[in-house]
Design a protein around this nucleic acid. Structure first.
Lengths: 129, 129
DNA sequence: TTAACTGCAAATCTTTTGCACAATC
DNA sequence: GATTGTGCAAAAGATTTGCAGTTAA
């Protein structure tokens, strides 16, 4: 694979953010320093980066895909109130055990998505009464 | 909510199938007995049925949503070879424990999707060599 | 009778793709 | 110089929506 300025910018942007941006948000944000960046390119490069394992795709039903730098293994919470995605850290070995315990299949990867209220919205709801 | 012939047909179809059909597939199949059924109606009714908890939505990144009758609690495997969705039964209490163990949030629901090879495709691959 | 539901078609939203040009090796 | 990557715009695919007509209560 050949070096590409755009692909590097996009990778840096995803790794540097913790808010799970969409392709659209990444594109808008990067246009400050790369005005002619096109959304098609962003989608293409994001797909490439996912394929080579540098970033992860976070899919939420009915919404545009979001992208996430791969650091520690974690799962996601989708907040029904603010519609943001929050990282969840659960004991990975125990999740993996459950997945590996499924008979007759070959599990290569998995994702867990929790739906509910994120910490901010839960706190807000509790202080409201 | 008022009775609707179409909604009942759609519910019966989803409950009667185990192959996690898409809206399109449900519509095509039901047109045998309800020729003027429209895809818009199918989407509308599926959304309603999901909302009232009679069926479940199964989302796979990059694919059309599939729908599933809610029987026992189960997770899903998406086969990268045949692109079918297979049910997985893991100990639910243990998954629930992990979800409930996440601090500071309110978990209301969750889904786990495993990616890999389904039992048919794994068996085929093993017998090939 | 009236409010909910449907069919139809158009609109919306996300993502992909074809093509001519530009950049990398 | 060959080939990969990009910008742009158009296309594709999934889903929603507006509206006029139909149907259940």
């Amino acid at each position: 694979m050949r070096y590409s300025h755009q692909r590097e910018l996009i990778l840096r942007e995803v790794l540097g953010r913790t808010d799970h941006p969409t392709a659209e948000q990444i594109c808008t944000s990067l246009r400050a320093e790369c005005p002619r960046l096109s959304l098609g390119t962003v989608y293409r490069d994001l797909n490439t980066l996912v394929e080579i394992g540098k970033i992860r795709r976070v899919s939420i039903p009915g919404e545009a895909d979001r992208f996430d730098g791969v650091q520690a293994c974690h799962q996601h919470l989708w907040c029904r109130k603010c519609h943001r995605v929050q990282n969840l850290y659960m004991p990975q070995e125990r999740l993996q055990e459950l997945v590996d315990g499924c008979p007759d299949i070959k599990a290569e990867d998995y994702t867990m998505t929790v739906f509910g209220l994120c910490s901010d919205c839960l706190a807000a709801e509790q202080s409201e009464g």
